[in-house]
Simulated scan of single mutants.
Amino acid sequence: MNQMIRSIKQKIIKNLGTTSRHGRAETDELVPSRYALRVGEIEVLVISDGVLTPPSESMATNADPAVRSAWLDNMFLSRDAFDWALNEVVVRSGGQTILIDAGLGEEYPDFPRAGQWGQRLEAAGIDLGSVTDVVLTHMHFDHVGGLLVDGVKKRLRPDLRIHVAAAEVKFWASPDFSRTAMPPALADLARRASKQFLDEYHSHLQPFEDESKVAPGVVVRRTGGHTPGHSVVRLASGDDRLMFAGDAIFPVSFDHPEWHNGFEHDPEEATRVRLKLLRELVATGSWLVATHMPFPSIGRVAAAGELFRWVPAWWDY
């Protein structure tokens, strides 16, 4: 046990949430917005883009309402709406600086607590001009929006590489929302954001079919399910492993992996993907980070009978 605790402390670096790149205290935040760790020789920084607040039924569209309400009550969460974290990741490996997903952006007034990705990158000392690669788990508006903020593209390198599954690019050319439970306004927002992204960044795209090595120890692989080209990113260095699962795993997934999320374009396939990834995480002991797990979204997955248990990392401070 002591060896495990020492190992965790070696991998989890000091929380960086209250210091800017200029050494000044950030006084506009009541809680930290970024957290750093190492995966072997790979540097990882989890960035909070803020919080979304969707209706509670959106996390379990196929659930019995009474069972869903009981789960929410047991977790001390509102039956009407809940705080849904929005996390992105910065990875440094082999001289490359890689952004995994890009947050919500600033043009969505219905989500006033999110859209802080750009400011928080800057506060963490991440210069957009130093970014060599972007990896997109998928192209929903809360994953590409930060790249659409005015002035961002001008600050990025002209040789920037954006890694995204070819199936994702194909899907958003003519997206199908018939199997989602997204409100029409959000479906329209998703269409607009994906079209704008493809129009502005098409020359930077590095589409891949099933898998692509982005940097030493950094591999992105298509899973499908949530969207046809949804992908996860796996980091490996020495004996250490981390999976960024995008929107494949949610807070409710450990108790109810069978519950469908309202933003899933193929709910049955998304469930199969979710179960496969959860079983992999149990078997490997890999760290897990996911877009909508509570910040800083760093932990492991343990078996709990036929279900699963989330084991959050102990913060170092």
Rank of each mutant, 00 (worst) to 15 (best):
G40L: 12
N15E: 10
G238Q: 12
V232T: 11
F141Y: 15
V149Y: 03
P184F: 06
R192W: 10
H22G: 09
I249D: 03
A66Q: 10
V220Y: 01
V219P: 11
Q96L: 11
A302C: 09
A114S: 15
L136I: 02
A283Q: 15
H143F: 13
R191F: 10
E43P: 00
P55A: 15
P65G: 00
A123Q: 12
S194V: 10
A25M: 13
T132N: 08
S178G: 09
A166H: 00
Y35T: 07
E200H: 12
V90A: 02
A270E: 07
E43F: 06
G145C: 09
N87I: 05
V144F: 03
A70T: 08
D64L: 05
V134I: 13
P228V: 01
L136P: 02
T284W: 02
G50D: 05
E258H: 10
L86M: 13
V214W: 05
A302N: 09
S7Q: 13
K9H: 12
S203P: 01
L37G: 09
R192I: 10
W117Y: 15
E41D: 15
G238H: 12
H202I: 06
P312N: 06
V131T: 02
L242G: 06
G262V: 11
D239P: 13
S7P: 02
P294R: 12
V214G: 06
I249V: 12
G285R: 10
R161T: 04
E264F: 10
D127V: 00
Y201D: 05
L52Y: 03
L278F: 11
S78F: 11
L86K: 08
G217Q: 03
